[in-house]
Simulated assay, not measured.
Amino acid sequence: MPDPQDVPDGPITFRPLTPTDLPMLRDWLAEPHVARWWNHETTLDAVERDFGPAMRGEDPSEDLVVSAGGVPVGLLQRCRWHDFPEYVVEIAPILTVPDGAVTIDYLIGPPGLTGRGLGTRILAAAAAGVWERYPDAPAIIVPVSAGNRASWRALEKAGFRRVASGDLPPDNPIDPPLSHVHRLDRPTTEEPACRP
């Protein structure tokens, strides 16, 4: 078993969350560095209630276990903005979300793996996964609580740019509503120059 303080080498991969992952996810959600921003109930019943619908395909979002070098290290959620119209309405006063745009949310579970560059690696791999999974998505748009500096700095290091700031309902009621919104546009491939 690897040392929990070592950041695993190897590729970042994603797989669907399964019922057998729920105890691990519950433990991650209970970690203080995760609980601070996710503000989630951590009983197994609550975790199953909230993550079960996506696992069963009853919800249009995807919950994915993130692994680094084959070691589970976190969770990635992704979905199209317009599959959840209420969120499009919430963000509309500060940003217009284009059709087909995707959003992501993420956490690193083991506390010893935070602040070591893993988040940036995960976000870069997550973006590549979005472009493959959603071939018509023009952009990934991610709102983050302004107080969660580690999260929005990881986005910026992964190539996202801040495109707006404004008030959004916080995930944790102890936070002020100010959020920063980051965007990454789908990469374009340039046509090779014509040669005579």
Rank of each mutant, 00 (worst) to 15 (best):
T42L: 08
P196W: 03
Q77I: 12
A125M: 11
V144N: 07
T114F: 00
M24D: 01
G70I: 10
A193S: 15
P23I: 12
T114K: 03
V65S: 02
H182R: 02
P135A: 13
G57P: 08
A146K: 05
P32T: 06
P85N: 14
V47A: 08
V163P: 00
W152H: 15
T189Q: 13
C79Y: 15
A127L: 13
R49S: 10
G115E: 01
R133H: 11
T188L: 13
E156T: 14
P93T: 11
R153Y: 01
R161D: 10
P187E: 05
R80C: 05
D63M: 11
P192E: 14
R15C: 12
L107A: 06
D63F: 13
D171N: 15
R133Y: 01
V88D: 00
D185C: 05
G100P: 01
D136Q: 14
T43W: 06
D45W: 03
G74F: 03
P110S: 02
L113A: 06
D50A: 04
H33F: 04
P170C: 09
T189E: 14
P11D: 15
E132A: 13
R80N: 03
D45Q: 13
E62Q: 15
P173Q: 09
D105V: 02
T114N: 07
W37Y: 15
A150V: 01
P110L: 03
R78I: 06
A127E: 09
H82T: 00
P19S: 10
G117Y: 06
V71A: 06
A164G: 04
G115I: 03
L64M: 10
D59M: 08
R26W: 10
W152I: 02
